[in-house]
Design a protein around this nucleic acid. Structure first.
Lengths: 193, 193
DNA sequence: CGGGACCTTCCTACTAGTAGGTAGACAACA
DNA sequence: TGTTGTCTACCTACTAGTAGGAAGGTCCCG
């Protein structure tokens, strides 16, 4: 039997999938209410304002991502495998169309008109991801697995941009396979061998 | 004396800057009307429906881009210079914050909820840009300027993703310089020398 | 030349519907 | 008993879009 998700979790789940599809202005309280079968006012009970809902949502996403990335570092043997598992995660998300875009990448594109409380949290996720990639690349260099043209932090920014750009191209051209076609050579190029 | 822009051009100009800032759902007819000092209804005279306005806007953008890229191919001596001028264009847009994002990249992120007439045109722009990059890379290889790891069309997709991802990172982290920090090494890596 | 007929552009005033958000009642439950 | 969660009912502001008309220009016909 499936675990019973709380109403506020259900609200956040639906809101996240709606943001992934259409961004901050692409969904409404009415959309969420219809999707989970409650009234608009009940959502306001859990999240008084939209900006607050999205801020909590991004906080939750950032925590989940941090935990997921940390567990990759613990379970995967080598930095090369860690990187591979990271992009495999997004490959499966995009190919089965479950969450075919990073919610923070989506929100980042709208950064200029986001409420401050949301924008700050989106920025934090970008910093966290860049830091994780940097540390994986650095570890890989130390173990002689990677040979980088640039500093690890610079290479991490390049890699992060490739991943987000690949998501965008896959979506724009309606070709899920394009994600790996772009990202796979990019990480292959880091390998020393 | 400056050329007098027609009202419909002014509408498209404002709409484009509003889309760059906040996407398809991030602006309204009222926003445009306020910005250029006319009434909402007058905008409906020029563009009866919002989807049509944006479709015309993307058509115009695609034509301008095609013309601009074509003139780069004619005025720049080598494929390497053509590529450099292309990214220099975006560098200046991002650094002086005039149009710090590609309107089609913005719309592509919202692809899933865009009206069909808009989505199709956004896809066309992505195809055009990929084709231009492919032909520049191919010409560069023929002239011995580039050495590519992959086929020119694959390498073009990788480069396009880097450019869009770099725009996103620059926006997310509020660091205009990040765009060139990501893109410059990416094109340097293509060079044979 | 005069004068319709027409067209373009913009206006005021309006519609139906949706946005985020609020007030207060009711039920379950610790 | 107070707390939590949900509801109905409502609000104001805003959404895209429409109706109808005023002002002005253009073109053609007499």
């Amino acid at each position: 039997m499936k675990s019973m998700a709380s109403t506020s979790d259900k609200i956040l789940d639906i809101a996240q999938s709606l943001i992934v599809a259409g961004g901050y202005n692409g969904f409404s309280y009415a959309d969420i209410a219809d999707a989970i079968g409650i009234r608009k006012a009940s959502i306001h009970h859990h999240f008084p304002a939209k900006a607050e809902l999205v801020a909590v949502l991004v906080d939750r996403y950032t925590k989940q991502a941090a935990a997921g990335l940390q567990s990759l570092r613990e379970q995967a043997a080598s930095p090369a495998d860690q990187l591979q598992l990271y992009i495999d995660y997004w490959r499966s998300c995009i190919e089965n169309a479950s969450q075919p875009f990073c919610v923070c990448a989506m929100l980042a594109s709208e950064m200029q008109m986001l409420p401050d409380e949301v924008a700050l949290r989106v920025r934090t996720h970008f910093r966290n991801l860049a830091a994780w990639l940097t540390s994986v690349l650095r570890a890989g260099v130390e173990q002689g697995l990677f040979r980088l043209d640039k500093r690890p932090d610079e290479q991490a920014q390049m890699l992060m941009a490739s991943v987000h750009g690949a998501m965008l191209s896959a979506r724009a051209l309606g070709d899920p396979g394009l994600f790996m076609a772009i990202v796979a050579p990019e990480i292959a190029r880091l390998r020393d061998t």
